[in-house]
Nucleic acid binder design. Structure first.
Lengths: 137, 137
DNA sequence: TTGCGTGCAAAGGTTTTGCATGGCA
DNA sequence: TGCCATGCAAAACCTTTGCACGCAA
């Protein structure tokens, strides 16, 4: 439960995640990507759990609303203090550092008595590139 | 696929959802709630799919981040035009009709070139009541 | 040497699917 | 009457767990 050893499997997995940090991956995608190195599926699931707890991996709901997808996040991103935009078409994750969102957070806190957790919240929509290509959702 | 017949099972299921519209339910919760009326589990899953497509049911990620939960939404709520707040502690769903959020949406559209889909987006956090009770997330 | 992390396989849980039957329009 | 929706059970998935072994510190 402590994940304190730096095992080969752990290194292989985080390396794979970093090399694909622009994409959203399923647990099986990750397994397929490193199974040739002899990493078992249960280890993949266990390490995914650890990395999510440590905040190095974000969990998303897939397009169909059912599947679970993961995406690597740099440790020094301070994701508790900004919103995230996620394009439903291409999957790109945008870290939104913007004063306007802080205003909204404070407004909702004061006027609507609700405390937003920014690390857990994802604003879904369509990014500029996909918009140009005609994506709509 | 068209769901054009008003079957007994469909009526039983939507009635059950309406009677529990304040709560988030798993597919199995719904099945347990109406199985005594002779509704099969596959019918529950198929109807859930239809209702989600029609926008009468919203899909959420459960607390542990893995399970899938559903919540009934009135058809006349126009959920495409406001954000939703969801309390991670008690599960209450709040429809947030507020000018400030429209401002933010327009700001992100213009300045960050990202089109937010409000129906798909849920702002997670803690509601006032749970806050008082000491909930933190 | 100690005990955590791993691999395997089995178990557990959830969702989908094929097919014959039943019921809505 | 003609189809669509349903129920059942099996299949397909996805994720977790028990246990013995291997490896990091």
């Amino acid at each position: 439960m402590k994940n304190e050893y730096n095992t080969q499997q752990k290194l292989l997995l985080t390396d794979y995640l970093k090399r694909h940090s622009g994409r959203q991956l399923s647990a099986n995608d990750i397994f397929e990507g490193i199974k040739s190195c002899g990493v078992g599926k249960s280890t993949v699931y266990r390490q995914i759990g650890h990395l999510c707890d440590e905040g190095l991996l974000k969990r998303f709901r897939g397009e169909n609303g059912k599947s679970v997808l993961y995406q690597f996040v740099d440790a020094d991103r301070h994701c508790n203090s900004h919103f995230h935009l996620k394009c439903k078409s291409c999957g790109v994750l945008i870290h939104l550092d913007c004063k306007k969102t802080d205003e909204l957070r404070r407004h909702i806190e004061k006027e609507h008595s609700f405390t937003i957790n920014m690390a857990d919240t994802v604003l879904y929509g369509v990014c500029a590139d996909c918009r140009k290509k005609g994506a709509s959702l």
